[in-house]
Design a protein around this nucleic acid. Structure first.
Length: 819
RNA sequence: GCCCGGGUGGCGUAACUGGUAGCCGCGGGGGGCUUAAACCCCCCUGGCCCCUCGGGGCCGUGUGGGUUCGAAUCCCACCCCGGGCACCA
């Protein structure tokens, strides 16, 4: 590039435009904006410092949509916030003794500057931070509404205790191998008083409403599986020789009840002590002690011999179907928390029951006739009932229905539905979270903090203990309060909320972020919600999305949110993960790649373009930066076109057929790119830009040169179409060429008359093999197509003088001659 | 084990409803510009074979079958990779 040229310098132009968008409030929208409304939201980030490539990918996709829809004349709500409570800040505090707040705020600053440097467009007036007292206040207020409505409750529950984090974990935070997702420690089991949200009240709604969501099918399936609805029956098995006692079981296969040859109870089940025969007591107690002392890992991984996993109680219950007494066992694989904590065992129809029966030498009775060629053990398939008296001959579904009718008629059981979904345990024994706003009083019990006293904010003068225990437990000023009900001495709850609580309503607050009368106004939420397009990582497919859906439904039912608002996110897009060397990119693995160096070397536009180009946005990608330079190179080509420094000749003339053809390809580009943006097919859109730009270089260097008017229209169209992808370079070139602000220009529209092509390459096949390609008129008919095909010497050579037996025509694209 | 995705050049990918497989880019090769290099511009680039150098033939989308005039695309079976769930009664 010579000194007189106008070099492409992203490091100069990008910050200038970023400052301008922020200072002018280009992407600020008011709630009474008259344009059609659209709400585009990327999942708000945990502020861990400067952005990494995962953030870049997420916010780049979101930003394209915001800018694209804005150019399409919509008022786009595009807010950003920070999920700023959480463990990393607290762990840092424990290490350094510094309070998590300044630490967190510094991280927010860093992340904000990365987002700005990326060119992401937000309404910066609406920023939300979970740890901000004005946000804490309303999170606590919502908690109190849930408490009032019975949706929040306190219960003693076996919990997952992480010894490393000194805290309780939700089931979701325990990995499949029984370790803590954060610390990697082995999770233990412990009984503690904890706060829960009654999400199970909404299990059926959460399940039903999945159907209407425009979400990836994969995510919908995960949610359905997580809720895990199963239909069946619960019924009572009277304990033999104990008039007063019965064992309640849940089964999905009441049709197989005649084959029930024993029953199994969870070791933690309250009935165990009463059930156990005296001569078995020692052994049973040893077993229970062993099982409850087991870590989650040991208990779940017990795949070995079953004879160590159960114990006979010495008691019998009566199978109400046969009237026969059957033995009762304890086994570690029966869960106290699912169903009734006890099961009927039908070894003939359930493989696990079969295995247990074999290990303990218990009888097997088949109640469904297996097919003749069946050579397995338990048979779980379809077939007529056998050995089942009045059910014999019925198919599975009919037998189920009849068995349930019988149970209900006898008054010993009923049809029931069970869900795998558990209530949401939200207590965390942490400091850096939203305090749970209740006070314990010896006289009044649990007393909610009066709404006027909110927010309850953790004190600053605290000392972080190396044990990891929350300093709130030792802060007298925070701990000791007067009971708001009786004025007597009270003690504050020191647990804080799971950070998923904060993220369960932030998208509502964005509609009305400074409201100090309510978490948000009904009107503001009605204007913007549901979110039209939610964008985030697939790792949040289950928990965050489930909790946010629950909150939305509960808040709507409580009248806090509009009653009609049943779902928070109408459309969801889950982008793929970025991996490095086959591993998930994460700070803890130390394989984070940050965008800063690329901003410097190639610019934000090149990095953004690379993310669009590298592959389909929903696919996982392995990080490699090989393509970024290519994106930068392409932007350089665009730049030279834009400033008139691309090689070739430009002339003023009346349009020649070649000029018209060039302009047609411009219209096809508009069509192709617009379609690509709608379909999230960004990689193909970039490829269309490159193809088109290559075409312009050829056009310029062609013998006749480029017609100025045609060329200008082509370049301007590319700039407009690329503005959502590469907002800085397009804005800069537009301003230099045309004046004004490209991002407030209307989206270009293709002229349908100009998107068609005059001639098409027709392929001619002989017996399905391509033998010739002939340029034909796009409007060619069957007969002409065949005639053209037969006229081809190449085709004739392959026909060997014979006549085709069959001719398939798909004019103007194809003729296939079959000999 | 069950439920989803996905296997296409050296690499990332494209091919929208079955109709030219490999667009675009990376990497590689060649040429131009330059005193030189970088940048930039142009051309070539799936494999094998033939060739009169213009081209021609065969093979080719994880494997094996099938449907069809025609299959990367649809069906069956299998292999591999990724993700989710996993004693849920």
């Amino acid at each position: 590039m010579d000194d007189e040229g106008q070099p492409y310098e992203p490091a100069v132009i990008e910050p200038r435009w970023q400052a301008r968008w922020r200072d002018e409030g280009t992407y600020e929208v008011d709630n009474d904006d008259p344009r059609p409304k659209s709400y585009v939201l990327c999942m708000y980030p945990y502020p861990s410092g400067a952005a990494h490539m995962g953030h870049v990918r997420n916010y780049t996709f979101g930003d394209l949509l915001v800018r694209y829809r804005t150019m399409n004349g919509q008022a786009v709500l595009s807010p950003i916030g920070f999920d700023s409570f959480g463990l990393p800040a607290e762990n840092a505090a424990i290490k350094t003794g510094e309070h998590p707040r300044p630490f967190t705020e510094a991280k927010i600053e860093e992340l904000t500057s990365s987002l700005l440097r990326l060119g992401a467009s937000y309404d910066w007036r609406r920023v939300i931070k979970s740890h901000d007292p004005s946000y804490i206040r309303w999170t606590q207020w919502i908690f109190l509404q849930f408490l009032k409505a019975g949706l929040a409750y306190r219960a003693e529950a076996p919990v997952n205790w992480c010894p490393g984090c000194q805290t309780v974990l939700a089931n979701e935070q325990v990995l499949a191998d029984g370790t803590c997702e954060r610390s990697g420690d082995l999770v233990q089991r412990k009984n503690l008083e904890q706060w829960f949200f009654r999400i199970t009240d909404y299990a059926q709604q959460l399940l039903d409403d999945i159907d209407d969501l425009d979400w990836p099918e994969r995510v919908k399936t995960m949610q359905r599986n997580w809720i895990g609805r199963s239909e069946g029956a619960t019924f009572h098995l009277p304990v033999a020789e104990r008039e007063d006692l019965s064992l309640e079981v849940f089964t999905t296969r009441p049709d197989t009840s005649f084959g029930m040859t024993y029953a199994v109870v969870a070791p933690e089940h309250p009935i165990v002590a009463e059930l156990t025969a005296d001569d078995r007591r020692a052994e049973v107690e040893a077993f229970v002690a062993h099982v409850t002392g087991e870590s989650e890992l040991e208990r779940l991984s017990s795949e070995g011999p079953l004879d160590k996993r159960g114990v006979f109680t010495g008691a019998h219950v009566v199978n109400p179907f046969t009237g026969d007494p059957i033995p009762v066992y304890l086994a570690d694989y029966v869960l106290a928390t699912y169903g009734t904590g006890a099961i009927m065992a039908v070894p003939g129809q359930d493989q696990r029951d079969w295995d247990f029966a074999k290990a303990y030498d218990l009888p097997v009775v088949r109640t469904v006739l297996p097919p003749e060629d069946f050579d397995g053990e338990a048979y779980t398939g379809e077939g007529p009932a056998i050995n089942s008296e009045w059910l014999d001959g019925l198919g599975v579904a009919d037998a189920k229905a009849k068995a349930i009718e019988w149970l209900e008629a006898k008054g010993i059981g009923e049809r029931t539905v069970q869900y795998r979904l558990r209530d949401w345990l939200l207590s965390r024994q942490r400091f850096w979270g939203c305090p749970i706003p209740v006070i314990f009083c010896d006289d009044c019990g649990i007393v909610p903090v009066p709404e006027a006293d909110l927010p309850v904010v953790a004190p600053d003068d605290v000392e972080f203990l190396p044990t990891g225990e929350s300093p709130l437990n030792h802060h007298a000023g925070f701990l000791n309060v007067t009971c708001p009900a009786c004025g007597g001495p009270g003690r504050r709850e020191t647990d804080t909320m799971d950070t998923f609580v904060d993220s369960s309503w932030y998208f509502l607050r964005f509609a009305d972020p400074t409201d100090d009368e309510a978490p948000f106004s009904l009107e503001a939420v009605a204007e913007w919600l549901p979110v039209d397009q939610y964008i985030g990582g697939v790792e949040h497919a289950i928990l965050h999305l489930m909790y946010a859906r629950f909150f939305t439904k509960a808040l709507a039912d409580l009248g806090v949110a509009p009653k009609e608002l049943r779902e928070p996110f109408a459309r969801l897009f889950t982008q793929g993960m970025i991996r490095k060397d086959g591993m998930k990119m994460s700070k803890s693995k130390g394989n984070l790649v940050t965008p800063e160096e690329y901003f410097e070397r190639f610019g934000a536009d090149a990095l953004r373009l690379f993310h669009f180009f590298v592959g389909p946005p929903q696919d996982d990608m392995d990080w490699h930066d090989a393509g970024i330079e290519g994106s930068h190179r392409f932007l350089g080509r665009l730049w030279r076109l834009g400033v008139g420094e691309a090689p070739g000749t430009v002339v003023d003339r009346e349009a020649t057929p070649a000029d018209v053809e060039q302009d047609r390809s411009r219209h096809r580009l508009i069509q192709r790119v617009t379609d690509g943006y709608e379909r999230w097919s960004y990689n193909t859109s970039v490829s269309a830009f490159m193809e088109f730009t290559n075409g312009l270089y050829h056009y310029l260097q062609s013998e006749d040169g480029a017609r100025r008017e045609t060329l200008d229209a082509a370049v301007d169209s590319v700039l407009l179409l690329m503005a959502p992808m590469a907002p800085h370079i397009t804005a800069e070139l537009w301003e230099r060429r045309r004046g004004g602000h490209i991002h407030t220009e209307p989206w270009p529209v293709a002229d349908p008359a100009m998107t068609t092509v005059a001639t098409v390459t027709m392929i001619v096949q002989v017996n399905g093999k391509v033998r010739d390609r002939i340029e034909v008129d796009a409007g060619i008919g069957d007969d002409d197509a065949v005639a053209t095909a037969l006229a081809s010497a190449k085709v004739q050579a392959h026909l060997n003088g014979g006549q085709p037996k069959k001719v398939i025509t798909r004019p103007p694209k194809l003729v296939n001659l079959v000999v």
